[in-house]
């Protein structure tokens, strides 16, 4: 660039004003566009949050307020009566216990199975690797409905029907493909060089895995475990088919929905929602890791 470009070549006043106006317009346009995007962002957030707010509002209102019409959009007074009414209703505590038990067993089982499998897919090149990935991808969306019916019959024949543990076996099958894919992407994000470095500096392959790979992969694995927990906690179709007297929380609520009062329903929705809210918050960084990689 030569110096002349920046010299004070005479510019007419009119021209300077025109440039000024143009610049101002452009700036306003830019600001408007930003504001527009912001408005859309906020509107979408309201769309997501409003129903959650309303149900929280209901959960913290007295049963009388819940039944009232027109309803208030803020809990007034704030009361734990509805929630305690719900929690004390028959079958809620045991079914919540079942839900937690099923979810934990599912998490433990699927993580134990998926860690080696995910590691194999992430680290080794072997015949059939792509086929296996494809199978995982496709069975991930496999209709629960299709499996639940025959499994219920099989479990009945085997005499292990209506047990939370067998439901956990089923949930493990449902979540395993996803867990394997997620964990393999977690391992893939730990550079192989680390493992090699560990081996050069004196680790056996197994030591290298536990000393270097696992600590680095642990947050991702934990996130995947949380996701698995949420999936199991939320799952209702298999739960309602595979259990009868030992229902999980969603299955219990769904089965008794037509007999339930509004305060019960709304409080139940809130109670089922809270763990998911918290868990999604903790794994938000990993969401892309979990679902993003399916494009590949």
């Amino acid at each position: 660039m030569s110096a002349e470009t920046f010299s004070n070549a005479p510019v007419s006043v009119a021209q300077a004003q025109a440039w000024d106006a143009q610049r101002r317009r452009a700036r306003i346009q830019l600001r408007l566009r930003r504001a527009g995007v912001y408005v859309v962002a906020v509107a979408l957030a309201v769309w997501i949050l409003l129903p959650i707010w309303l149900i929280a509002n209901m959960a913290f209102s007295t049963p009388q307020d819940v039944r009232a019409f027109p309803k208030s959009f803020f809990p007034n007074p704030i009361s734990l009566e509805s929630i305690s009414f719900f929690l004390n209703a028959q079958g809620i505590i045991p079914s919540t216990g079942n839900s937690i038990f099923v979810a934990i067993v599912t998490v433990v089982l699927s993580t134990i199975l998926a860690v080696p499998a995910g590691y194999a897919i992430a680290r080794y090149v072997f015949r059939g690797r792509d086929a296996i990935r494809l199978v995982m991808l496709s069975v991930r969306a496999f209709p629960i409905v299709v499996l639940a019916v025959p499994l219920a019959v099989i479990f009945l024949q085997l005499g292990i029907f209506d047990q939370p543990f067998t439901l956990a076996l089923m949930h493990t099958a449902l979540t395993l493909p996803t867990t394997i894919l997620v964990i393999s992407s977690v391992f893939a994000s730990v550079p192989f060089e680390f493992e090699e470095a560990a081996q050069v500096f004196g680790c056996t392959p197994l030591q290298a895995f536990f000393q270097v790979v696992l600590p680095l992969a642990l947050p991702g694995i934990a996130a995947s475990a949380i996701l698995t927990f949420v999936l199991s906690w939320n799952e209702v179709f298999a739960a309602i088919l595979l259990t009868l007297s030992n229902r999980t929380l969603p299955a219990h609520i769904l089965y008794n929905l037509d007999k339930s009062s509004d305060p019960f329903k709304f409080a139940s929705a809130f109670v089922m929602l809270v763990p998911s809210l918290i868990f999604i918050f903790f794994i938000r960084r990993y969401l892309f890791n979990m679902w993003g990689q399916i494009n590949k």
């Binding site: 550079p191 060089e193 680390f194 090699e196 470095a197 050069v200 500096f201 056996t204 392959p205 680095l216």
Partner: peptide, 18 residues
Amino acid sequence: APRERGISMVFQNYAIFP
């Protein structure tokens, strides 16, 4: 195995454990 060879190595991307 690498660990039995009595060598050490500097990796291209360093492989410093984070």
